[in-house]
Amino acid sequence: MTRVLFAALMITTLTAGVTSAYVLQANSSTTTVERDRAASLYKSGKTEEALIILKQVVKANPTDDQAWLVMGLAQLQRQDVKGAAKSFETSLKLNSKLPLAHVGLSYTLLMRNKLSDAVREAEIALGLNSHLENAHFVIGAARLRTGARQDAVDHAEVAIKQNPQFAAAHLLKSQALVAFISDALVGDKNEARDISKRRYAEAAAALEKYLQLSPAAPDRQTWAEQLESLRFYSGNKQGGDVVYRGSEVTTKAHVRSKPEPEYTAAALSNNVRGTVVLRGVFTADGKVKHLLILQSLPMGLTEVCIAAAHRIKFDPATLNGKPVSMYIQLEYNFDTH
C-alpha cells in the first residue's frame, strides 16, 4: 500500500479556531475574572503571560474545567503536547461535555500517532458540537495517515465549508490530493492522465489558498517549495529535461551517502513519531531536485528531512551509457524508543 501524507496540523491555526469557540462559552457563572483575563491574553498571543495566570487559577481552584481547557490550548500554542494532553484530560475528568477539550485531546493523540484514539475523541467532540471544523480536520488527518484518502478530502472540505478561513483544512485537502496522485509520479499507467492533471491542479489551488491564509506560518517556505514541485510534476515546468522511471533506465541511480536527519528538540520532547516520505528527482548532473512531500511530521521534522535529502550523494542513473534524471522516493523514520 502506498504510504500517504500525514497532514501537519498548524498549531497556531488550530488554536485560533478553538479560541473563538471558547469565547462563546466563556460567559458562564463560573467564569472568574482571572480566567477571563488569561483567556484574553491567550487570544492576543501573550501565551506565557496567560499560562502564568492559568497555573495560579487551577492551583486556587483545581475544579475549574474551563481554566484547564484554556491552559491546554495555551500549552499547544507553545508546542508542549504532553502538558496540553494532561490539561485536556483533567478538564474532561471534571466535565466530559466540553467539545473543545475533546478536540484538543484528539490533536495531542494525533501528534503521538495514536490515530484511532484521536478519531474517537474528535467524533465525541462532533457529537457535542457538529460545527467544530477542527474536529473534522483531526479526523481527516488521521484518515489520511491510514490511507483513507477520500475520507481525508471529505473531512477537509467539510471543515472548509464550515470555516473558509481555516488554513489548515486547505493544507489537508492539498496533501490528500497529493496522496491520490503520488503513484502517478512514478508512472501509474492505470491512472487517467486527465484525472491526474485535475488532481494536481486542485492540490496546487488548495495549497495556494493555505499560503494566502498563512502569510506568517513558520513552515511557509516548505509549502511554497511544495507548490513549485506540484507545478513541476503537473507538467508546468520550464525546460525540456526528461525524467525517467526506474524501470525505464539501464542502470538506476546509486546512492553513495544518505545523511540521516536528527530529531528536533521539540519533536523529541513531545514524543512525535512516524515517517516522512518524499518524492523527488535524482538529476543527471548529480543534484536532488523537485522534492514533493507525500507524508510529513510536525515540529520541524519534515524540514530536517528535506535538508538531509538535499545532501544525498549519488551516481546518476544511466540510459544507453549516458547519465539521465530519475524519479526517487525517500523515507525517514522517527521513533523515540
Rank of each mutant, 00 (worst) to 15 (best):
R193V: 09
A192C: 02
P218S: 04
T222M: 15
E208Q: 14
A192W: 05
A204N: 06
L177D: 06
A179P: 01
L213T: 13
F180Q: 11
T222P: 01
L177M: 10
Y200S: 00
Q212W: 10
A203N: 08
Q221K: 15
A205Q: 13
Q175S: 15
D183H: 06
A176Q: 04
Y210C: 07
A176G: 08
K197I: 08
V178A: 10
L207I: 08
N190A: 10
I181T: 12
S182Y: 02
P215L: 13
N190L: 09
A216S: 11
S214H: 04
F180L: 12
A179T: 13
S196K: 07
D219S: 14
A179G: 15
E208G: 10
Q221T: 13
E208Y: 02
T222A: 14
L177E: 14
P218W: 04
E208N: 09
L185T: 02
A217H: 14
H170N: 04
A216P: 00
F180C: 04
A203M: 11
A217S: 14
A201Q: 10
A184L: 03
S182Q: 13
L177K: 12
A224R: 11
E208L: 05
K173L: 09
R199P: 00
A203V: 01
R220A: 13
K197Q: 12
L171G: 05
E191M: 12
A204F: 05
E225H: 07
R198P: 00
A179Q: 03
R198D: 03
A216M: 06
A169I: 06
A216L: 07
K189H: 14
Q175M: 15
D194E: 11
V186M: 10
Q175P: 06
K173W: 10
Q226L: 06
T222K: 15
A184S: 12
L185H: 02
F180T: 03
E191Q: 09
P218L: 04
A216I: 05
R193L: 11
Q212I: 14
I181F: 05
S214R: 12
R199D: 00
S196P: 00
N190F: 07
R198Q: 08
L171K: 14
S214V: 03
V178R: 05
L171Q: 08
N190P: 00
I181Q: 05
K173H: 11
A206F: 08
D219L: 09
A217E: 10
I195V: 14
E208D: 12
S182T: 05
A201L: 06
F180N: 11
V178N: 02
K173S: 12
H170S: 01
N190C: 01
A216R: 04
